[in-house]
Amino acid sequence: MSLIYPHESFFEAHPKHDSPTYRSTAKRHPKQPLIILPHTMTELSGPVYGHEVVQEFDNDLTRQHAGEPQGERIIVQGRVLDEDGRPVPNTLIEVWQANAAGRYVHVVDDHPAPLDPNFSGAGRVVTDENGRYRFTSIKPGPYPWRNHHNAWRPAHIHLSLFGPSFLSRVVTQMYFEGDPLFPYDPIMNEVPEHARHRLISKFDLDVTEPEWALGYTFDIVLRGKNETPMETK
């Protein structure tokens, strides 16, 4: 099935490259106007990475080490959909996050919070034939950064997705419903206001497992819709 990728869907959802409240964008955005790219086979196609690249425990970040990580065990699940609400099957999702104390294992993270020897915070999962994904992890902690005085990132999990083409590719962050840090976070608030809620996962009692883990549901919508008769040439 071939999809189309209206440019409007990109403008409507994504933050601008020049986002003044997120200071690091200042020297890292183009000042020349972007050129509208007619979509060719290069853009309309994409790489194929599926179940063959995922190993045991890639989808359970609590079982990658000898012991149990510290923190609140969570299950994150949802569907990956296109703009028409159709499932995106067999697509790779890469995830990474801080540990329960808000510390990343990355070598340049110098936040004075403890590393957890039983938690790396990196995982991968592939959607099933119905576009569903599910992984187990630890709720990440908020952490400070130096964007402005007393700046703290709300708890979040990074997600990287491919979808059906080079145009559906996206890297995003999933937040947790009710986080008091939302109003102060430039990274979230540079997203157009009407679209911000799409980044927030919902606590889900049906996903929660008794005496084991809290469940959160997060559906992800990638660019791409069916060509309608109105839009055919």
Binding site: F10, P15, V171, V191, L222
Partner: peptide, 13 residues
Amino acid sequence: SGVTPSQTVGPYF
């Protein structure tokens, strides 16, 4: 549904 917005890859990817 609206497209899920992009967020920065950040420094720790």
